[in-house]
Amino acid sequence: MKKIIFPLLCCFSLASCAKTETVFEGNFQSLFDTNVSVRIYQGSDENIQELKGILSTFSKETDNYLETDVPGVYTLNQSNNPVTVSSNLYKCLQKGDEISKSLDSYFSICLGSLSKLWKEKLPNGTIPTTDEINSELLKFQNTSITFAENNQVTRNGESEIDLGGIAKGYAIDMCANYFKEKQITQYIVDTTSSILLGEKPSEDGNYIIKIKALQNSFIKAKNICVSTSSIEHQLYVVDGKRYSHIISPETGQAAFINDTCIVLSESGTLGDALATSMMLMSLPEIISMEEEFNVKAIVIRDSKVIYQNEDINIFHG
């Protein structure tokens, strides 16, 4: 009898344990001009609230359009005076400056003024004049950022800082550090264009990510950052020519070669910057970047995959 009762009890225990996973979720509106969602399968609501606080502050700090109650990019853009910022923003600016230097003619965090110029013109169906672009390009070329002790940052020059290309990527890196510190391994943070994936409490631990630029196409991934840059919702046609929100630091043009670039990397900040840069790159340049930075990419043009890293499997549902 005991021989039968024991397996039965095990069976009941198994049944009661199965799928009793706990999920804590948060949807934070209007952070980084989008909706940020966080889902964790371990920890507590307290973790969600702590992350909300961290992300909310960082979103304010990186805003270059609105004055907020914390010193940040907006403050830096008002003058060339030194500004003491938070350690998170300091590190983000440092990382952004470092990436800008290594990606040289494809990406910069000092393109704020040129970006604003294009954003003012394109929605009205116009484009900046060559003189306007050249004037802003000159300002950009003469702008730099210096970093001093005690989180002091100075913008030197007239072009504005714009962290739009890496803010969400850095935000998910902050989340990754938080999860590591709290020993949380099962999570997903979705900032729309940058997604942080931990492990999913499923058989293989993979999350399924739908590729919006393709029909019924998905990738599976875990323990990685997925970043994308796309012309979707950011495409303008003026006099038959297509323009996007991506500004070339080399020409000052709001140009693009590829329609969507998806980058899988260990760093959200780097992934974001590379996804943006790859929009301006030819395929050989993209492949070279993949090798240099140890990332994996998918490149889409006209709703077709024109390149995918051999380690990425796109499946159709």
């Binding site: 949807n27 209007s30 997903i188 399924i208 990510i209 739908k210 919006k212 998905f218 994308t228 549902g317």
Partner: peptide
């Protein structure tokens, strides 16, 4: 297709149907 009322800070999102975890 979430419904957002920014003025009232109301956000309505439907869960439970997706065959994927996120979109990019």
């Amino acid at each position: 297709h979430p419904i957002i009322c920014a003025y009232n800070e109301v956000y309505i999102v439907i869960n439970g149907q997706a065959n994927h975890d996120a979109e990019i």
